[in-house]
Design a protein around this nucleic acid. Structure first.
Lengths: 368, 368
DNA sequence: CTGAAAGCGCTAACAA
DNA sequence: TTGTTAGCGCTTTCAG
């Protein structure tokens, strides 16, 4: 016997001590389907039944099991958020203010649409646990995917929607990506510096090959060519903060010292300011300064420094919308590539040099 | 017919297009039990079988279903991370540098033990979705739980381990909490100011009733009483940045103007510096300054400002260890309350006043 | 040492 | 309209 002993109505009574859907059904005098429908707003039940079931569920402290729902529906409501790290360190944020703001916006956006964000590590070199395969994800956001990120390609291959913040280098077939228009941003900012009187603009850039660095540097070189200026730049490994200070110093120590500098990375503003001080250069009188940063520090430095903001909040939000659209099959089925504008926050450090320069072209009052 | 049509070996073949455990079993010529055991390092299988199964699984691109595992085992490997917000805004971080660092450390610590962090909102007032009940959590970290946080009490009631960063006000029976020794920190810092020559130390504090504000303020008042100084303080709603600037100004405008100030919140340093400037007070000559902050800004202000660091990284890590211990049933079963030290980072703003002041009490060389 | 079978709690077809 | 039933894919006793 035993094989197929007319099994009892399935499921003893209650799980782990807390009420299950069957308990609610029993207590409300309905079937479990009705409970499920009533609670999920599905089906076509009389309002009375619905209310009744809800009330009973409430009274019993019923909490539906997310795991069971996920298993059944195939949707977990979870979105992965990962930062592929520059250096070796497992979990560093170099561009911290950027990430913090981006993550904040992404979290809000996701929550507003009923999803939660799971923070996941970049390809764990040899972690004893592979967290990635331990969580059911509906999709993933990848920040700054590096050249041949194994996790990303794995994810894409497995059919999971992946949206990237920053256009992926290489040809990772992500579902969508969002990025700033780095070329335009850099050229615009160089124009701004030129208008403020800069004659030779220098660049502080990185040695790494990520697209941000590459596009920005290229844009700089092109701009130089267009206006006929010799490029003046120094490179350093962006993840090393000390190297940045050294590179800033080097740049200002050159014989062909620039009279304006754009720094690609967040700490460059501070580094350049310090270097300028060492060489007795006044900002903005002797040296104009701009750097790319989300930090509010630069509003209160002495002098305040003009920054290029990448608007991480807007990006975080957009990325999430795109991803959830893909998850829910709303968006277009072909890859989306969205370019977002940047913001140049002009402060003293790049202000037109005072009187002397401004007055330089005295003319008759224009009358046209 | 059909009712009970001698059902086939269960499970068609493959799910959603990807390989399932059954496919692996079939391909490897073993039972699904063996596959499960081989992959999870359970059971006592010959190494050959184990390797073989692993290889087949790999070849098929098999990825175990996290949802199914969770349903079966009751463990999701997911930890909730929530910040109960001060104001009305759904997702603001006032103490941003603090949170960022704390979250970073917590994430690392969790990942190192095989868990991932899910960012969850504070009690969503009336969100259309209740994300909380949509994710299977093994436990939750709560940052700065407010007085009667409904989510926290609900979680605790439902038997989920909850560890709090910051001792919970009221009597929320959390599994454990971690907090700084705020009393000691404040008294130590006041002593430091006094040693640097402060005669009347003022306080910039908050109007809210959270424990941090309360404990710090009390510590200040007690210290004043002990050394026989009249308390000089201003309060303002900590979540309003403008109010902070105003309060700083008010404090320095008082007739009984303090000659040293401690500000409880991150932006206070900047605010106080600005206010001091307005009143023509030199720091540290006329006014000593300390504030509680994790921001690196204060290393480069003019002058650099002494800060009290709460060591959020250490707290984040500890909180996670405690939580996972509780989840895995390792730790002590009674509530743990862990107090962590703080760090006073002494910079120019609180340095001993130079000669003139030091000399202020000319006496005969003490000989006792 | 291996395999068959019994569910974890829920939702979605279908049957009544 | 409501209830019955068959699994979602996995782990885990328990027989072989």
């Amino acid at each position: 016997m035993s094989r197929k002993s007319a099994r009892p109505p399935r499921g003893g009574t209650r799980l782990n001590g807390r009420a299950g859907i069957r308990d609610v059904a029993a207590a409300a005098g309905v079937s479990i389907t009705t409970v499920s429908d009533a609670l999920n707003g599905k089906g076509r039940l009389p309002d009375a039944t619905r209310r009744h079931v809800r009330e009973v569920a409430e009274r019993l402290g019923y909490r539906p099991s997310a795991a069971a729902r996920t298993l059944r529906t195939g949707k977990s409501g979870l979105i992965g958020l990962t930062v592929t790290t520059y250096g070796e360190e497992p979990f560093t944020f170099t561009e911290f203010a950027y990430f913090a703001e981006m993550a904040r916006a992404a979290t809000s956006a996701a929550l507003a649409r009923g999803y939660a964000l799971v923070i996941l590590p970049a390809p764990a070199r040899h972690s004893p646990f592979d967290v990635w395969s331990n969580v059911a994800l509906d999709g993933t956001v990848v920040i700054d995917p590096s050249d041949q990120d194994p996790v990303v390609s794995e994810l894409v291959r497995s059919g999971l929607p992946v949206v990237s913040d920053g256009r992926p280098s290489g040809s990772l077939p992500v579902t969508a990506w969002v990025d700033n228009d780095h070329e335009e941003a850099v050229q615009g900012l160089l124009d701004h510096l030129a208008e403020s009187g800069a004659r030779r603009i220098g660049l502080l850039t990185g040695t790494s090959t990520d697209t941000y660095t590459r596009l920005s540097t290229t844009a700089y070189l092109e701009w130089c060519e267009r206006v006929g200026q010799d490029p003046v730049y120094e490179t350093y490994p962006a993840h090393d903060p000390c190297a940045g200070a050294v590179a800033a110093d080097r740049l200002l120590a050159r014989p062909d010292r620039p009279d304006a500098v754009y720094g690609l990375f967040d700490p460059n503003g501070t580094d350049l300011l310090a270097a300028a001080r060492r060489y007795g250069l006044r900002v903005p009188e002797d040296l104009l300064l701009v750097c790319c940063s989300e930090s509010t520090v630069y509003a209160t430095t002495e002098p305040p420094i003009t920054t290029l903001s990448l608007k991480p909040g807007r990006i975080g939000n957009t990325v999430i919308q795109l991803l959830i659209d893909a998850i829910e099959g709303i968006g277009p089925s072909r890859p989306v590539q969205q370019v977002m504008p940047t913001d140049l926050i002009v402060r003293t450090s790049s202000q037109r040099r005072s009187a002397r320069t401004t007055v330089s072209a005295p003319r008759a009052p224009a009358s046209d």
